[in-house]
């Protein structure tokens, strides 16, 4: 990959107790691009994604070796502030998970945690984040309504707005559309296209057509290993590895 890398992994191994979930994963995530991770269930793609903001730290008996660098800094050095890391590397999950609060408070939550108290500044951040998440027009007149009253697709975009509110560099998306209908999915996909201007997006998806549509780079994982990683066009037109070929043509997985 010729583009400058924002995240670099070097020989990453990960174990859940004795079970090895990642095996010697070395890859580069280019800045301001969309990178998709594909592979059959249990191949380690979500595990890898959760390494990038050390979300696996929250699980007991996890052991990681190797090196993960964000902006050329190892994220596992003892002095790393994990809260700051997760501010830089935001995450959107499979199921929309808004807080049981108002739409406004959902988005303002992160900035408040990080010390923003000024009401005008919070207003500005909330509006801008909702704009960036392409949901402002739909919610601008009901910012004080409960977020739980929104549709699934709207909730997911709200969660994206909540991620954007703390100005991350990287946005991790773990199957962000699998709980949504096709129209809501299309909206999220359009949004991803817009987001890459300002952010680096890494998306895990089961849906290969989605990976092909939204990403510029694709990594194919199998049994904890990164089998092949390259430009999306190349991976889907003529993959180099037979395993990749067999997976994306539906011969297994």
């Amino acid at each position: 990959m010729s583009e400058s890398a924002i995240i670099t992994t070097n020989n990453v191994n990960l174990w859940y107790k004795e079970k090895q979930a990642l095996e010697s994963v070395s890859m580069k995530i280019p800045k301001n691009k969309v990178t998709a991770l594909i592979g059959p269930s249990g191949c380690g793609k979500s595990t890898l994604l959760r390494c990038f903001n050390r979300l696996n730290d929250l699980i007991d008996n996890v052991k990681i070796t190797g090196e993960i660098k964000l902006d050329n800094k190892n994220i596992h050095t003892p002095g790393t502030d994990v809260v700051m890391l997760r501010k830089k590397v935001g995450m959107v999950f499979q199921k929309p998970n808004p807080f049981p609060k108002s739409i406004y408070d959902n988005v303002a939550y992160g900035p408040r945690v990080h010390g923003v108290k000024d009401k005008a500044e919070l207003d500005r951040i909330v509006e801008q984040s909702l704009h960036h998440a392409a949901i402002w027009e739909e919610v601008k007149d009901r910012l004080n309504d409960s977020a739980l009253g929104l549709s699934g697709g709207q909730q997911q975009r709200l969660c994206i707005a909540r991620t954007l509110a703390v100005e991350p560099e990287v946005i991790l998306m773990d199957e962000p559309c699998s709980a949504l209908d096709p129209i809501a999915t299309a909206k999220i996909e359009n949004l991803i296209e817009l987001l890459k201007r300002d952010y680096t997006v890494i998306i895990v998806t089961h849906n290969m057509q989605q990976a092909a549509r939204v990403s510029e780079y694709t990594g194919f994982m199998y049994l904890g290993r990164l089998i092949e990683c390259g430009k999306t066009v190349q991976i889907f037109e003529h993959p180099k590895q037979e395993l990749t070929e067999n997976y994306i043509t539906g011969r297994f997985g």
Binding site: Q209, A212, F236, E237, H238, P239, T244, E245, I248, T249
Partner: peptide, 9 residues
């Protein structure tokens, strides 16, 4: 079927 890779080719 939105074929890919060899299938598409």
């Amino acid at each position: 079927n939105q074929p890919m890779a060899k299938d598409m080719r």
